[in-house]
């Protein structure tokens, strides 16, 4: 339950993604592998003019999205052999975060969204009635409603492959191991080591994103090593699970309801003569 923010998932059995964006080469193999394995329908071929990104965003029909950012900044100790170069090209493969405190799961009124034995969050397509509540609940803009089926859809971390002891399609196909799959606690340790390495190489702006179990969503199952502020990649800088404030919301709504009852009763106080 979201009201118990001290709740911890059984981290020992929880799996996740560590996406190290410092070694992403923007090949989009993860996008393709995800589409193919999960039969995710196409969602249009559009030209945006945003560097190499024509995928635009995560949605019901896009479960991996590679972001491309071109910046007039040097990248660490870069020795390109062409003199000084103040240019860096950030690439990052975004995905559902599989939050510890998942708002989509909390607000789902049918129980279609559920927490799996791997600690991931999955939509049961045959239960979802397409109410769309999970869409505005997600603080990362991940989940969407699929036009063709009328139901919600998002990354399942390849639930079927996990059950067979396989790693998710995107991680399997990633040629540089920018996307790493594994036990979450082990990934977190690996990420700390990698962060030190990247910083030592001169990328002072490197930071981990989503690794902290004390953040607003209780830490994410899919976390990242970023080279700039999260919002540069289209990620929220301080996401909070919306249900954190729900007890206060219910209290306010309760007080308002009692006030409405009392107020309307008072309007008829004097008996009609």
């Amino acid at each position: 339950m979201a009201f118990d923010l001290d709740e911890r998932l059984d981290e020992g059995r929880r799996v996740g993604f560590f996406t190290d964006t410092s070694i992403c080469i923007g090949c989009k193999a993860c996008e393709v592998a995800c589409k193919e394995w999960n039969h995710v329908p196409d969602d249009g071929l559009n030209f945006t003019g945003w560097s190499y990104d024509n995928t635009v965003k995560l949605s019901a029909d896009t479960w991996r999205h590679v972001a491309f950012v071109e910046q007039r900044k040097p990248l660490g100790h870069q020795e390109p052999g062409v003199g000084d170069l103040d240019f860096r090209w950030l690439m990052a493969s975004d995905v559902c975060k599989h939050c510890t405190h998942a708002a989509c799961l909390d607000v789902c009124p049918t129980g279609s969204l559920f927490r799996t034995e791997f600690g991931t969050v999955v939509v049961q397509e045959d239960v979802c009635n397409g109410c769309g509540y999970c869409v505005p609940a997600c603080p990362f803009g991940v989940i969407g409603k699929r036009e063709t089926s009328g139901t919600a859809a998002k990354c399942t971390m390849c639930y079927d492959r996990l059950g067979a002891g396989e790693e998710p399609a995107c991680a399997k196909t990633c040629p540089t191991d920018s996307i790493q799959f594994g036990d979450l606690d082990e990934l977190r340790e690996r990420a700390e080591r990698r962060l030190e390495q990247v910083r030592a190489a001169g990328a002072a702006s490197a930071r981990l994103y989503g690794h902290d179990p004390d953040d607003g969503v209780g830490g994410t199952g899919a976390f990242f090593l970023l080279l700039d502020e999260p919002e540069v990649y289209g990620l929220p800088p301080d996401p909070v699970v919306t249900t954190r404030d729900l007890p206060s919301m219910w209290r306010q709504a309760g007080v308002a309801a009692v006030a409405l009852l009392a107020g309307l009763a008072a309007t008829a106080w004097r008996r009609k003569r």
């Binding site: 945006t48 945003w50 990104d53 635009v56 965003k57 995560l58 949605s59 972001a67 950012v69 869409v135 505005p136 997600c138 603080p139 990362f140 803009g141 991940v142 989940i143 969407g144 919002e231 540069v232 990649y233 289209g234 990620l235 929220p236």
Partner: peptide, 8 residues
């Protein structure tokens, strides 16, 4: 990110 909304 290119002025795009964070949320869906």
């Amino acid at each position: 990110y290119y002025g795009r909304p964070v949320l869906n």
